[in-house]
C-alpha cells in the first residue's frame, strides 16, 4: 500500500496537502520547508519542480518558480537534495511538475530516481490521459508511483470516472476552472464538491485552488477528504523572515 493511501486510511477528513516550490525561497531551503510543513500539520507535501512556462499555475507560483530557477534548481539538484529526506520526512511526497523538464531528464530514469529518493506520487498537469495510457502510465506504475489526475467543474461525469479509474492516491479536484491562486467566491463551488461526493469515486478527493484560510479549508473539507494549499502558502513564505515561524503561523491559521 502506498504511503499516500495510508494517510487516507488513518484520516479521512481534513487532510491537508501543502504545495511548496523546490529551491524556493533559497536553493537549499527545500528540506527546511518540507520539515517545517511536516512539523506544523501538513499530512502530505506537494513539491513543485520549477519550470519556465508553467501553464497551469498562477502568477504567485510562477514567480516562485522563476526565483527557484534563478537559484539553480534542476531535477538533478532536487534528487540530490532529497536523497536522505526519508531520514527526517515521514509524510508522503508528491512531485508536481511539467512534462518538458522530465522528458529531458528521461521519463523512466525520472520515475526510477523519484522512487529511490522516497517520492510517493506524481502530479503532471500537462500529461493528458491519452499519452498517459499509451506511453507513460505503464512506467509510472512499474515503479509503484501514484499518479494523480486533475478534474475541474468543467470535467464531464464520464470523464471524471475515467480519470478516477486511471488515478491512484487521490483525485485532485480544482475548485474553480482557473489557474492557481484565483480568488473566487467559494460558495459557488460547494455544489460541485457535493456532486463529486455523491459520485462515490474510487479515490479520495482533495480540493485545490483558492484555499487560503481556515474558513475556505473547512468549507472545502466539508464535501471531500481534504484540501491542497499552494499560492497562499508561497505568499506567506515570501513575506516571512524565517521558514519555521512563517510556516507555523500560516498552518496554525489554516488548521486552528
Amino acid at each position: 500500500m502506498s504511503r499516500i493511501t495510508e494517510v487516507f486510511l488513518k484520516k479521512s477528513n481534513n487532510v491537508l496537502n501543502v504545495y511548496c516550490t523546490a529551491g524556493y525561497p533559497e536553493l537549499n531551503s527545500t528540506l527546511t520547508v518540507m520539515q517545517a510543513l511536516q512539523n506544523h500539520g501538513a499530512d502530505l507535501i506537494e513539491l513543485g519542480m520549477p519550470y519556465s512556462d508553467p501553464l497551469a499555475d498562477g502568477p504567485i507560483i510562477q514567480e516562485s518558480s522563476s526565483i527557484a530557477l534563478q537559484n539553480g534548481m534542476t531535477i538533478q539538484v532536487l534528487f540530490e537534495q532529497l536523497k536522505d529526506c526519508r531520514n527526517t520526512i515521514h509524510v508522503p511526497i508528491i512531485l508536481m511538475g511539467y512534462m518538458n523538464p522530465i522528458l529531458q531528464y528521461g521519463f523512466e530514469a525520472f520515475c526510477q530516481k523519484a522512487v529511490e529518493v522516497g517520492v510517493d506520487g506524481l502530479i503532471l498537469p500537462d500529461l493528458p490521459e491519452y499519452e498517459f495510457e499509451t506511453m507513460y502510465g505503464a512506467m509510472i506504475k512499474k515503479y509503484g508511483l501514484d499518479f494523480i489526475f486533475l478534474i475541474t467543474p468543467e470535467t464531464s461525469e464520464t470523464r471524471i470516472k475515467k480519470l478516477d479509474a486511471l488515478s491512484s492516491g487521490f483525485l485532485y479536484a480544482v475548485s474553480s476552472s482557473a489557474t492557481t491562486g484565483n480568488d473566487k467566491n467559494f460558495a459557488e463551488v460547494e455544489k460541485y464538491l457535493q456532486n463529486l461526493q455523491q459520485m462515490h469515486l474510487k479515490n479520495p478527493i482533495m480540493v485545490g485552488f483558492g484555499i487560503k484560510d481556515h474558513a475556505t479549508f473547512i468549507a472545502a473539507c466539508k464535501y471531500c477528504n481534504g484540501a491542497i494549499i499552494g499560492s497562499a502558502y508561497i505568499k506567506a513564505l515570501s513575506g516571512s523572515v524565517d521558514i519555521e515561524t512563517g510556516t507555523e503561523n500560516f498552518l496554525q491559521n489554516i488548521i486552528k
Binding site: 501553464l55 497551469a56 512534462m99 498537469p125 500537462d126 500529461l127 493528458p128 491519452y130 499519452e131 489526475f149 486533475l150 478534474i151 475541474t152 468543467e154 470535467t155 464531464s156 470523464r159 480519470l163 480544482v174 476552472s177 482557473a178 489557474t179
Partner: peptide, 19 residues
C-alpha cells in the same frame, strides 16, 4: 486522430483546458 504528425503534436494541456 490524436493530432500527431509522426512523433510530433498531440495535446499536452492541463485538465482546465480540456473542455
Amino acid at each position: 486522430a490524436n493530432g500527431y504528425f509522426g512523433m510530433f503534436g498531440g495535446a499536452y494541456i492541463p485538465e482546465m483546458l480540456h473542455r
